[in-house]
Structures are given as C-alpha cells and as structure tokens.
Design a protein around this nucleic acid. Structure first.
Lengths: 141, 141
DNA sequence: TTAAGTGCAAAGGCTTTGCAGCATA
DNA sequence: TATGCTGCAAAGCCTTTGCACTTAA
C-alpha cells in the first residue's frame, strides 16, 4: 500500500516527481529530524538530481498539503517530519544535540483549558524542552 | 532602584552605553514582543544613534548574560523579552497575530516527570500554541 | 501533449564581522 | 586614558524567484 502522503499528492493535482518521492521517503524513513540542507545532501548522496530550490519548494508544498510538520527548535534550525496522527513533543539536549520525542496527555488537558477559559481555539501545540540528557549529565560529573 | 538587568551589565565588566540602556528599556517597557528590526526602528524613532549591528550585538550579549529571553514563534520571527522569574508560555493567534501569554502549573509537573522518568534535566521549557482567538473566531462566523 | 515541476543563477532578507573611530568608567 | 563599544560596509547564510528547459500523466 502506498504512503498516505503520496496518495495525497496525487489526489490534489500535483505531480509525483522523483524528487518529491525521494524527499518524502527521506523525511519519513529517517529517525532524525532534518533541515532543508540535510535533506538536500542526503538526496544528493542517494544519487538524485535535485537542487536546494526544489527542496524548499517541495517542503513548502508538503507543509501546505499537511504532509509534513515544520518544527522550530531553539536557535535557527527548522526541521521537518512526516505529520503524525499522535501529537508528540520535543526534548532537545543542549549537550549533544540529540532530539528525544515524547508524548503527554497534559498537552490536550491544557488545550481544553485554554478553549474553555480564554475561548482560544488551539490548532497546533508545540512543546519544546531544552536541557541535558542523562548521558551528558553523567559525562559532566 | 536600578533595573536588575542594568546592575547585571555593570557588575560583569560591560559598559552601560546609551544604546544598551535604551534597548533594555524598550524590551522591558513594551508589552509586545519585538524582533531585532522592530527594536532598531523604535530605537531610531526615539532619536537614538544606533545600527542594526549594535542591536544584534546587544541582543546576543543580553541573552548570554541571561537578561533577555529569545522566543521563536512559528515561522521565522524571533522575539525578545526581559527574562521573567515566572515561566510563562505563548499563545499565538493565526488570525490577527496577537500573542497572548499564559502560565500553567502543568509545565513544571511535566518537567519533573521528565526528570524522574527519563533522567532528562530540563533547563528551559517553551510551550507554543497556535490557533484562533475568540475575536477572530467571531469574525469568521 | 501540456500543465506542472525542475535547475540555475540572481536577488532578497536577516545576521555576522573587520576595522577604524568613539565613548564609558 | 584604556578598554570596550559602535557604525559602516562588506560578507555570509539561508531562502525565494524568474526564466528556460524537462517531465509526469
């Protein structure tokens, strides 16, 4: 069965080019979060014919179609990941840069509370924690 | 009594220039969150002699000294605010761009849980909600 | 076949930096 | 007076865009 994201592309009048197919598969198969440059470089090392312009254009399209999520972590880096049905949040280690994902029911509690108390309709919640992972703490001692 | 941030500057061997004083007061007195460009323009309209280079250099210094917090909201904009003792989070309206601040004890609960269960030592927590505020929802109906 | 997508190169923003002159303490 | 700071202008990145060529369906 084909990826949901590929079906979405096709059913919305967009072409499924080799570049788009590769980018989607890189984003969904890699465990790590990649920014535009990293995606470009991985695509190149897969032997693809692709340019940064195409990477950016595809990422915009994917975002628009709701196929990927754009995540801003800390400083200036923007990462992409295939949109997940379950909300999950990010924990970034300031020591080694590792990104740990986690889920928490507290987020939806908070979302509901904001809706109730402030009338604010939350469409998107990002929780971003920074700190030091166990290993980096051990290393420091 | 002088601002805490000004004392911090002085006690750490940094000069208190007119540009730094003005930037700190703009950041702490404005209710809104401003990015580098907005700060620069407000400083200019206050009649200051200042350049973008100085704005960036000062913001880096303030951040390093822990005087201001840098907040990444959504796309590409980075805002600054005077560091607050109490943690507060941001709610951004996708309709009008308004930024609402709120606090929640759930954050520290979650922080403690991550420490306990994953050994992750959280130094910084940012919660970023997007959605539509009451007025924008009303307008849409 | 043809609308849509791509690559290239140039342009646009934002941010950083080298250097000479200026200002705080 | 002596560091440290500032402004200017240039350079560095990342991202976007115009245009001619290519490709999926």
């Amino acid at each position: 069965m084909r990826m949901r994201s590929i079906r979405n592309l096709e059913t919305q009048g967009h072409l499924l080019t080799s570049q788009r197919r590769l980018l989607l598969s890189l984003i969904s198969n890699s465990g790590e979060h990649m920014d535009a440059r990293e995606l470009y470089q991985r695509a190149l090392s897969n032997g693809a014919s692709i340019s940064m312009a195409t990477v950016y254009r595809c990422l915009h399209l994917f975002k628009e179609l709701g196929l990927v999520d754009e995540i801003w972590l800390g400083q200036t880096r923007c990462f992409y990941e295939i949109k997940q049905p379950a909300q999950h949040q990010h924990l970034v280690c300031r020591g080694c840069g590792k990104v740990i994902e986690f889920e928490s029911p507290l987020i939806s509690k908070l979302t509901n509370k904001l809706q109730r108390e402030k009338g604010f309709n939350v469409t998107n919640a990002k929780l971003h924690f920074e700190g030091y992972c166990q290993q980096c703490q051990d290393k420091a001692n």
